[in-house]
Nucleic acid binder design. Sequence first.
DNA 1: ATGCACCCTGTAGCAACTACAGGGTCAAGC
DNA 2: GCTTGACCCTGTAGTTGCTACAGGGTGCAT
Lengths: 136, 136
Amino acid sequence: MKIGELSRATGTNIETIRYYERIGLLPAPGRTAANYRSYGDAHRSRLSFVRHSRDLGFTIEEIRSLLDLSDDPTRECDEADRIATRHLEQVEEKIAQLSLLRDELARIIGRCRGGIAADCRVIEALSDHSHCENAH
Amino acid sequence: MKIGELSRATGTNIETIRYYERIGLLPAPGRTAANYRSYGDAHRSRLSFVRHSRDLGFTIEEIRSLLDLSDDPTRECDEADRIATRHLEQVEEKIAQLSLLRDELARIIGRCRGGIAADCRVIEALSDHSHCENAH
DNA sequence: ATGCACCCTGTAGCAACTACAGGGTCAAGC
DNA sequence: GCTTGACCCTGTAGTTGCTACAGGGTGCAT
Ligand SMILES: [Zn+2]
Ligand SMILES: [Zn+2]
Ligand SMILES: [Zn+2]
Ligand SMILES: [Zn+2]
């Protein structure tokens, strides 16, 4: 499989695949006589793992740890579960933050009655957090 | 006011203040004889506006437009409201995305029963999106 | 032989900071 | 008068996770 085919098979940009190789997330594949990268099934499933983990919001470093773990199937899985749990906590925290933001933005926008900038409650609200009702 | 004082007054990193000046978001202040930046109240309130807008998640470019608007108080405020409304929509979209993510992560983590990596449902789930129940 | 799709390397750009390195300034204390 | 320490300056490079060239080579069909 050449890189374009791997790209289509996994929905990953070609430049991204080369980037993952460069940072050591994917092993360097063999090369054809023309110096083209040549991938097998192992590469494809490793890349799928990476892409799916990225889609779930894991960082590259977290994925590196998760890959190490899946490369050594005799190890205990608790590190994987710890990484995933911490990530879930971060996602929940982010949702909570964004919800505060959303509420505050909705409140600010709701106060605009049109007119000139000097009288706009949106502009006014932005200039000072003390007009806010939550901590966002 | 020297930069350190402005930094404390607005809760902004000194390097960030200089960065905002470099990209033209804050006007270059006057200088003392020793070539130290010297700020006044106008600078402080402009920086507060920027920080608060950043805290609410607006991009630098959005803030540039909002500042232009508040610099010209006779203009209609509808652009400010449009920017804020679009931003609110983006925040809501992000919350929806993260909620899908959270549900999927919680489901994945809930399936782990401990043991070795070869049997771990977390590792398995990461390797293939077709095990997922939503689109995240 | 010429077009076209595909591949290669290496570098630079994005957002929004943050972190130095390597230097200058200024007031206080001994 | 000299050192210590807190502060300030410029300029550059790093962060995360890609993405976009520039400038070239390869392979196959017409
Ligand atoms: Zn308005
Ligand atoms: Zn606020
Ligand atoms: Zn497990
Ligand atoms: Zn999935």
